[in-house]
Simulated scan of single mutants.
Amino acid sequence: MSGEIEQRLAALGVTLPQAAAPAANYVPFVRTGSQLFISGQIPMGPNGIEHKGKLGADYGVEQGQVAARLCAINLLAQAKAALGDLDKVVRLVKLVGFVNCTPDFGDQPKVVNGASDFMVEALGEKGRHARSAVGVAALPFGVAVEVEAIFEVS
């Protein structure tokens, strides 16, 4: 039987993908003590990279939120790869969201809400977290959003 978090994901209609391999010289996660640091995840879907573009030019806030949600799904896939069981997550400590945007775009927090809202849906109270939402001039592969996470784990 799957754990509580996997049951929540199933209720949301979410199947975690296979954790993506790193695209450069880094590891996808590092566990040290009771903390799990997960490298930035991009909106990688079943058919490869999705949501390429710039907020404020190619994408609106709602499309950016969909991209951020997909990043969050990939964060949980990495957490499962690291821990074997998502119920070892004590809490999500922090998310950092990077939004590929035009200089005049100011809705980065609304975009990253796509990831934050999903984490609370998936993890319940364990998913409430500290956060930064940062606008950047470009992201790897031209994606619209990248999100990284720090979890407390048992």
Score class of each variant (00 low, 15 high):
residue 4 E to A: 15
residue 8 R to V: 07
residue 10 A to P: 03
residue 15 T to L: 08
residue 16 L to F: 09
residue 17 P to L: 10
residue 17 P to G: 12
residue 18 Q to V: 15
residue 18 Q to G: 03
residue 21 A to N: 06
residue 26 Y to N: 08
residue 26 Y to E: 11
residue 31 R to N: 00
residue 34 S to M: 02
residue 35 Q to I: 03
residue 38 I to W: 04
residue 38 I to S: 09
residue 44 M to D: 01
residue 44 M to P: 00
residue 47 N to F: 10
residue 47 N to C: 00
residue 50 E to L: 13
residue 51 H to F: 15
residue 52 K to N: 00
residue 53 G to R: 02
residue 56 G to L: 02
residue 60 G to P: 00
residue 60 G to I: 02
residue 68 A to M: 11
residue 75 L to W: 08
residue 81 A to N: 12
residue 88 K to Y: 04
residue 88 K to C: 01
residue 91 R to P: 09
residue 94 K to I: 01
residue 95 L to S: 10
residue 98 F to M: 14
residue 98 F to A: 14
residue 103 P to G: 02
residue 105 F to K: 11
residue 105 F to G: 07
residue 106 G to L: 08
residue 108 Q to G: 07
residue 109 P to V: 08
residue 112 V to G: 02
residue 114 G to F: 06
residue 116 S to Q: 13
residue 116 S to P: 00
residue 118 F to S: 03
residue 119 M to E: 11
residue 120 V to G: 05
residue 123 L to N: 01
residue 125 E to R: 10
residue 125 E to M: 07
residue 126 K to V: 04
residue 131 R to Q: 14
residue 131 R to I: 07
residue 131 R to W: 14
residue 132 S to D: 13
residue 134 V to A: 01
residue 134 V to W: 00
residue 135 G to T: 04
residue 143 V to A: 09
residue 147 V to C: 12
residue 147 V to Y: 06
residue 148 E to Y: 03
residue 149 A to F: 08
